[in-house]
Amino acid sequence: MSVPETTRRRLLFGSTALGASAVLSGCLANTPPQQENQAAVAAGGGDNAAPGKHVTIGFSAPAADHGWMAAMTTYARAQAEKLPDVTFRPTEGGSDVSQQIAQVETLINEKVDVLVVLPADGKAMTDVALRAMQAGIPVVNVDRVFDSPDAYRVWIGGDNYGMGINAADYIAAELERANVANPVIAEIAGTDSLPLTQERSAGFREGLAKHGLEVTRRVAAEFTAETGERQATNLLQAASHLDAVWNHDDDQGIGVLSAVEAAGRDEFFMVGGAGSRQVMDRIKAGNGVMRATVLYNPSMCSSAVSLARLLAQARGMSDLAEHEVPRSVTTYSAVVTRDNVDQYLDVGFAS
């Protein structure tokens, strides 16, 4: 009996498919062991939530002289309390660098398993961090970076340059939306001698330049409400009109807002920095100059404690394929506005 051409083609196709399947099966059967294990590598970090060996985490940070710094210590302690396999050994916040160095030396002598250090001065504390690493104690360097990469196993901190960029992008978009031509843009920086302030200012300046804008007026405070109020008063007296203001820090912003209210000025909008709860509440209320804030989240200290635990337990991060904790982690500086403020209230800190 003759086979119709269409049926013959189907049979040939089916035979070809079966042949291909057989070849494929043969290839899979001969897959080298290292390729068979590739799928398992994706779980390199294991289950981070599962208890591991008990470890002692030493913690050192400067004195809690303003809200953001106090929140860093609060977050670290709270995270450690959630971890049943961790003993948390914090030191009292030092009033100066030499006191903090002595406290870290004490933790080294106690042979803690791992150190989390937010240095008052990264350069000044590099040597003691190097000694910890040389003693076999991994160091998690938080925010203010040590001078040598050998002084820490992992760094975690905020994106100061990115803060400036994101603040500039938001301000430029708001000015364009309001159709403001030749705007007067002011910047109230933090402590000018600090690299973090320099990076924030560079990001802001270069971010504005992308939009054909520039900083018209600039003053620098010192991350306190008192200096913020004093410098904002000087700025407002020198500038009869402003269109937008970026204040680097919400702690000094308490003083800045006091000066604004005392002067009765409301012709401009203001963007903050770091993300205090007081500023977020003002943004949500929507009844003043405060329009947004750019995060520099103290919750990074919670993450630092979690990373320290994994380092001491020789584990990686469960959502990453690598078997080790990464060398560095940079947090993101989200812009908090009235539209999304509810999403970020949980990380707002008290100024």
Rank of each mutant, 00 (worst) to 15 (best):
N37R: 12
P84Q: 13
V23Y: 08
D127E: 15
V112F: 02
A61E: 09
R77T: 08
A70F: 08
G52D: 10
L118V: 10
T87K: 05
A43F: 05
K82Q: 15
A102G: 06
R131A: 12
I101N: 07
A22E: 08
A80Q: 07
S15I: 15
G14L: 14
A20K: 04
V140G: 10
L18N: 14
L11C: 01
D96T: 13
S98F: 10
S21C: 13
F146S: 07
L115H: 08
A78Q: 05
V23R: 06
W68I: 11
A124G: 11
T126Y: 10
G14K: 11
G44T: 09
A40T: 13
Q34D: 05
F13P: 01
I108C: 02
K123E: 12
V116P: 00
R131N: 15
A76N: 01
G26Y: 05
A43M: 10
V142D: 02
A39G: 09
D47E: 11
V139M: 05
V128Y: 10
E81S: 15
A40D: 11
S60P: 00
A78I: 01
V116W: 03
G136V: 04
G46D: 03
L107Q: 01
A40Q: 14
A124M: 09
V142S: 08
F88Y: 10
L28H: 09
S15A: 14
L115F: 04
G94H: 06
H54S: 12
G14T: 10
E105Y: 11
K53R: 14
T126E: 03
A76H: 03
V114S: 00
R89D: 06
G67A: 04
G46L: 05
Q35C: 00
R77K: 08
A17G: 12
G52Y: 06
A49W: 02
P4L: 04
A22G: 14
L12T: 10
V86P: 06
T87D: 10
S95C: 07
L107H: 00
M125E: 14
A20T: 13
M133F: 09
R89M: 04
A76V: 04
